[in-house]
Computed example of a mutant assay.
Amino acid sequence: MYPCERRSELLDKLTIGISAYNNWPGLKLTLQKLVEVGLGDVKMVIVDDGSKKPIDFDLSEFPMDIVFKRYEESRGCVFQRNNIGSMVETDYYLSIDDDAYPVNGDICDVIESMEKDLDISVMALDVRGPKDSFELHVDAYELREVRYFVLCGCLIRTDHFKKSGGFQNPDELGWIYNEELDYSIRCWRDGHKIVLDRRFVLVHDRELVDGEDSYKSNCYARGLGYLHGRYFTGAVSLYKFLKMPFMLALSCRTRPFWLSSLGAFIKSYRVGVEHRTRDSRIFRGKDLWKWDRLDLPPFA
Rank of each mutant, 00 (worst) to 15 (best):
R206N: 10
D97V: 06
I66M: 06
H160P: 00
R6S: 09
E145N: 06
R230Y: 04
F62D: 02
I111A: 10
L294M: 09
A249N: 08
L11G: 09
G285L: 06
D182N: 14
L151W: 08
R276G: 01
R198C: 03
P298G: 05
I176M: 15
L10I: 11
R198L: 07
K43V: 00
S184P: 10
E172N: 04
T233K: 09
A221D: 02
D126N: 14
P245I: 09
T90S: 15
M123D: 02
D49W: 00
K116H: 14
D132L: 07
G129E: 14
D292N: 06
W24R: 13
S86I: 10
L34D: 00
S184E: 13
H275K: 04
V45L: 05
K33Q: 03
D190R: 15
I107W: 01
E36P: 00
G85E: 12
Y239E: 06
L296W: 08
G105V: 12
W289N: 00
V146T: 13
G223C: 07
F232C: 09
F79G: 09
Y101I: 12
W289T: 05
M123T: 12
V110S: 02
K53V: 14
W258H: 15
K286E: 11
G76L: 09
M247K: 08
E207C: 06
R276T: 02
M244T: 07
D213A: 13
Y220W: 14
D99R: 11
E274D: 07
C252M: 11
L288R: 01
L173V: 07
G229P: 02
S19N: 14
H275I: 00
R81G: 03
V273Y: 00
W258G: 09
R128C: 03
S51H: 07
D139A: 11
S268Y: 01
S51T: 11
V271C: 06
M64V: 06
Y239R: 05
K69S: 12
A124L: 12
D58T: 11
K33E: 02
D132I: 08
F57I: 14
K162Y: 05
R199M: 09
R276C: 03
D41A: 06
S268F: 01
S133I: 08
L259A: 14
F200K: 04
Y220R: 11
P130V: 12
K243Q: 09
M64N: 04
E274K: 08
L250R: 12
L259Y: 05
M247D: 06
M244D: 01
R70C: 06
L39G: 00
C252A: 13
D49M: 03
A100K: 04
Y220K: 08
S261F: 03
V236K: 10
C4V: 10
R293V: 00
K28Q: 13
D106H: 10
M1R: 08
F57N: 14
Q168N: 02
